[in-house]
Amino acid sequence: MSKVSMTVNGKAVSGDVKGNTLLVEFLREDLRLTGTHVGCDTSQCGACTIHVNGKSAKACTMFAAEADGADITTVEGMANADGSLSVIQQAFQDHHGLQCGFCTPGMVMTAAALLKENPKPTEAEVRHYLEGNICRCTGYHNIVKAIMAASGQDVSAIAAE
């Protein structure tokens, strides 16, 4: 066991982890932040996407020990300070960007990373950026639409509802 300390959603946390403890296990099982999902555990689906020092990463493909000293944001840290939904989260609700919701935490974190890098992406850029996030329900159209809307663009002409 070794001790790790990091900042998670603005709060300093620490814990004892084994070498092979994945960051997603530390978040879900030790910190009880179960918003970050595990869909595949093999780096394919992106349900576990979080931000490490402001950059997206798959929490199933990183050890907790590698996050020692890092600044981590999970989906629990995305809402506004008063608890209301962030612009991206609200857009997912407004545009029906989720069905079962399993992929949604990862989609929201990836969308946030995209809009930070590229505040007004084209539809093609959104689709390309979502390559590492798999959704078995929606067919992606409304996810793309939600992200475009969250970037402040007119989405009335995009794809089907």
């Binding site: 780096s43 992106g46 996407t49 990463a57 798959k58 493909t61 990836t110 390559e131 590492g132």
Partner: peptide
């Protein structure tokens, strides 16, 4: 890979 993979 994808954006998250490219960050690591």
């Amino acid at each position: 890979g994808d954006p998250a993979v490219r960050n690591r």
